[in-house]
Amino acid sequence: MKPPTFDYVRAESVQEAVQTLAANGDEARVLAGGQSLMAMLNMRLLHPSVIVDIGAIDALNYVRIDGDEVEIGAAMTQAELWKRPECRQHLPLLTKALPHIGHWQTRNRGTICGSLAHADPSSELPLCLAVTEGSVVLESQSGRRVIKADDFQTGMLSTAKREDEMLIAARFPKARPGIGYGFSEFARRHGDFAIVAVAAVADGSTIRVAVGGIADRPAVLRLGDTDAMDEMLNRFAWELGGTDDIHATAKLRRNLVRTLGKKTIEDALACRG
């Protein structure tokens, strides 16, 4: 279908964007790459009165190393980040996960931060942010705040972002020697929504494994070692509470948590630098 009508503002700076958000409350929506928002508009799932386009704010198109973190600006596309040397060098988990997101054409437009703000429970990027314990930077006219992944995504398509705020950057911890990363996904067709996606981070003494696609937001399991891995993954699979639907049965989902979970942890342990 065609989108409903809306006013359109092309913001030239973050100040302009947050000013428009402050003036319009929940009537405004931020458009970055548009790969989720435009589809929702075309399906008439949303009826904003104004669209604030931030895709042309050059100051937000960056990736930079800041101490122990890599900060990615809100206009940086998924395809562009994947090509950056900073990604290969400092973000091995994203290097593995990015090719699973959507398709060639959607990665060319879709942004890292847009996917985080959209907060789809089966998306790869919220999963990566959760498992690495990264954070997001929110800005409004009243200031800036940094929120941890776990506090940011509150449920399916919902976050702690206020209506007058926009997500201006995401921060992922920089890879460190001795830590390994794994990522696996099961989907009906490459690029489709994940039925189950798993990301793992492992160092010598702790393993974190996160599962997306089942609960209403990424769920993280912490393990001390691999001794009781099968048992813990089995319990985790039941706790996540998957249900039967047109795409997969609850049983298949539990099986995927056990098998993909184990494989992803082993991958992470195997590639510790």
Binding site: Y8, R10, G34, Q35, M38, A39, N42, D53, G55, A79, W104, Q105, T106, N108, R109
Partner: peptide
Amino acid sequence: GKAIRSCLTLAVQ
């Protein structure tokens, strides 16, 4: 130069 979906892009963009 980049392949994109024209149904997910606005003309004004």
